[in-house]
Design a binder for these strands. Structure first.
Length: 384
DNA sequence: CACGCGTACGCCCTCTGCTGGTTTCTC
DNA sequence: AGAGAAACCAGCAGAGGGCGTACGCGTG
């Protein structure tokens, strides 16, 4: 991820039916001096008007391209309107004129129906660029949900001290009641878990969590789906399951707009497709690197697990209880398949290995019958 | 009756791992 | 070129963490 680009914004009703959200880039960080120079070269300092939600752009200056995307941020889970300011590294149009300033104002048209929307300049990202490549600025606005600020530190300052008098001594959290504070401290600091499972080692902070846990032992599934035979052990899983019937994909990758049914799936996608220095998982039994941990499990089961029914090598009589061992064994056969003519120094490949192989040595126009070790066998000599 | 406290319920989240379809690789 | 195998990938569900809130009960 690149540096953040600070934005200031204000919402001002004007021009009768329209509201305008004005964004101003305050400055670019010193380390982004190169970007400033690029922007100054290619972008006129003028306002753009973007029709929110439809991607209709007006007054796009030469050398710049704007697009509007809407989705849900994978990191903060806010509804997002994202304005991408794309700039070619080298301005191709001869009519483009260099300017002194980067673009400093964006105007976004917002209908009156959107009065309830609150914007915050929470996420702004600047993607790194390749030399001469495309540079993109992501001005991303978060549409706040009607939800608590939870544990996000950057929003915690907004919590009202008057309404949340019970402050935790070990962190910045504050709560309405002492009971909430007490529970929070058990979860985060004292790690006290008074509820113990009689079947396994699980323990929990709350009795309700133990009740839910017990269902994993009893198999009780009180939450049944109306549309299929699925039943869940808790309400949330049923709700999540219902997405499979509606076809809804509420999580959208803000980079490639791919959509996903679960946030975790999108997170993996973003890591694997758009992440940097993505770690890979190395098989402990062979040198294979696999992108996903779950697929390493598949690899281990398929190639390294013990097989009750042994598989015989197709080249010889050897049998193996592990597929990977068989694969490695077969490779030794393949490496051995080059043979020398017994009459001269010519070498040749066997087309296939069987218990007995017959090879036409076209070089010497004589038929050679070979065993697995590349020498003529007594049985073969009798056949000849 | 107001208040504090504990409990129960509910919601949403992350992490995890299995599954099956698709793509890529190897022979 | 084609078949089979392995890796890639998204879908999906299990399990558990964390917190908001409603409710009941005891107490002053």
């Amino acid at each position: 991820m690149g540096a953040r680009v600070p934005l200031e914004w204000s919402l001002s009703p004007e021009e009768g039916e329209k509201h305008f959200l004005t964004l101003q880039t305050v400055c670019l960080k010193a380390e982004e001096e190169d970007l400033q120079q690029r922007m100054a070269r290619a972008a006129p300092a003028r306002a753009f008007v973007v029709q929110q939600g439809q991607g209709v752009l007006h007054n796009v200056p030469a050398g710049m391209a704007l697009s509007v995307r809407e989705g849900i941020c994978g990191f903060c889970d806010l509804g997002l309107t994202q304005i991408n300011v794309s700039q070619e590294g080298q301005v191709k149009s001869s009519e483009s004129k260099p300017t002194d300033k980067p673009p400093d104002t964006l105007l976004i048209e917002i209908g009156r129906d959107n009065d309830i929307i609150e914007f915050e300049n929470k996420v702004q990202q600047l993607t790194p660029s390749e030399d001469g490549g495309e540079k993109e600025l992501f001005f991303t606005l978060g549409e706040t949900k009607n939800q608590s600020c939870k544990a996000r530190g950057d929003l915690s300052d907004s919590c009202d001290d008057g309404t949340r008098p019970y402050k935790c001594n070990d962190c910045d959290m504050a709560f309405v009641t002492s009971g909430e504070l007490s529970r929070h401290r058990r979860y985060k600091h004292t790690l006290e878990k008074p509820f113990k499972c009689s079947v396994c080692k699980y323990s929990s902070v709350e009795a309700s969590k133990m009740k839910r846990h017990i269902r994993s032992h009893t198999g009780e599934r009180p939450y049944a789906c109306d549309l299929c035979s699925y039943a869940s052990k808790d309400a949330y899983k049923l709700k999540r399951h219902m997405i499979t019937h509606s076809g809804e994909k509420p999580y959208e990758c803000y980079v490639c707009q791919a959509k996903f049914t679960q946030s975790g799936t999108m997170k993996i996608h973003m890591l694997q497709k758009h992440g940097e220095n993505v770690p890979k998982y190395q098989c402990p039994h062979c040198s294979t690197f696999i992108a996903r941990k779950s697929d390493l499990g598949v690899h281990l089961r398929n190639l390294h697990s013990y097989m009750a029914v042994a598989i015989k090598c197709s080249y010889c009589e050897a049998v193996f209880h592990e597929r990977y061992a068989l694969i490695q064994h077969k490779k030794t056969h393949r490496n051995e398949k080059r043979f020398k003519c017994d009459q001269c120094s010519y070498t040749f490949d066997l087309e296939s290995f069987q218990d007995i192989s017959t090879v036409k040595n076209e070089h010497c126009a004589s038929e050679i019958v070979l065993g697995l070790d590349g020498t003529e066998t007594a049985a073969l000599r009798e056949q000849k």
